[in-house]
């Protein structure tokens, strides 16, 4: 009864949020459930066949899974470093700041296909700009093949960060600007060094902003597909991530097996999300 009364009092709020939930339910959650179901199907019967098939996968499912788990934090770290560095710089009031702020935002408007084309010039296997620079300054004597093996992950992470760090920078800059100046002043009076102020004031205040930025990016990083498709393409030496291989299996026309890959990916993601909610709940209840 209490629920009914509450519902009546907040009828507008409920009606407001329902369309969004229904939309996401039909377009995202239903296909997910359908995919999980499909992954256990063989000729109309439930079976683990598709998962056994995954063992014959090349590169092996294990490798691909490890690659995905390793790639995500690596790419996030690059993005986060670039974003925090620029946000800290842009948080100072110096002449020309707004011009630089505009310049830094530009990549966010460049489409992924376009940035991939630009970076394929930089990371070409022979005589690309990256190789020219490395050889020019004497760091390397031979051409580095940027789109094969583990180095491909580095190229992808850099190209991806280039496009996406501006958004994270904006979120972090927003967080920085919300820290009251008085906290720094008080710390300075107490003789705290710049580094101490950064560790004791800036980072804790920034924490929720860092967390949401990381969640937003981790989601896309797990599923990164468009960029590697163009940047490394069908390079057989690319070691693959789950979503990349999913796409490949799909192009080969085996919907059930790719559904199994997707289910594996989803389970990994869910583990991380649960850890995340647990950790942020623990920290959140303490500090806020």
């Amino acid at each position: 009864m209490r629920i009914v009364r509450q519902l009546k009092n907040n009828l507008m709020e409920v009606v407001f949020i329902l369309p969004l939930l229904i939309f996401i339910g039909i377009l995202n959650i239903y296909p997910i459930i359908q995919g999980i179901n499909l992954s256990f199907m063989l000729l109309g019967k439930y079976s683990l066949y598709n998962y056994y098939q995954l063992q014959n996968y090349t590169p092996s499912l294990y490798t691909v899974t490890v690659n995905t788990i390793a790639f995500v934090p690596f790419a996030l770290a690059i993005e986060f470093f670039l974003a925090l560095f620029t946000a800290l710089l842009l948080n100072r009031s110096i002449r020309g700041r707004s011009v630089f702020r505009s310049i830094i935002m530009l990549p966010y408007g460049v489409a992924t296909v376009v940035s991939a084309i630009a970076f394929s010039f930089i990371f070409s296997a022979t005589n690309g700009y990256a190789n020219e620079i490395l050889i020019g300054i004497g760091l390397s004597h031979s051409q580095v093949n940027w789109t094969s093996g583990y180095i491909a992950f580095f190229s992808i992470a850099v190209a991806d960060s280039w496009k996406t760090f501006p958004l994270i920078m904006l979120i972090l800059l927003g967080g920085l600007q919300m820290i009251p100046e008085s906290q720094y002043e008080a710390a300075a009076i107490d003789g705290a060094s710049q580094l101490q102020q950064f560790v004791r004031i800036t980072l804790p205040n920034l924490y929720p902003f860092i967390m949401i930025a990381m969640i937003i990016r981790a989601v896309s990083e797990f599923n990164i597909l468009s960029l590697p498709l163009i940047l490394v393409g069908s390079n057989v030496q690319f070691l693959g991530t789950l979503s990349f291989n999913l796409y490949e299996t799909f192009s080969l026309g085996s919907a059930n097996i790719s559904a199994a890959v997707a289910t594996v990916l989803l389970s990994i993601v869910m583990v991380f999300v649960l850890i995340y909610i647990y950790v942020s709940g623990k920290l959140g209840s303490g500090s806020r």
Binding site: I32, N223, S243, L265, G284
Partner: peptide, 25 residues
């Protein structure tokens, strides 16, 4: 706290590869 969880939930629904929702769609 509730709104934070709703926002995270919204992002989590995206964690499925586009191809997986794209084909049934």
């Amino acid at each position: 706290r509730a709104s934070y969880l709703v926002i995270i939930f919204l992002f989590v629904t995206q964690m499925i590869p586009e191809i997986q929702i794209g084909v049934p769609l």
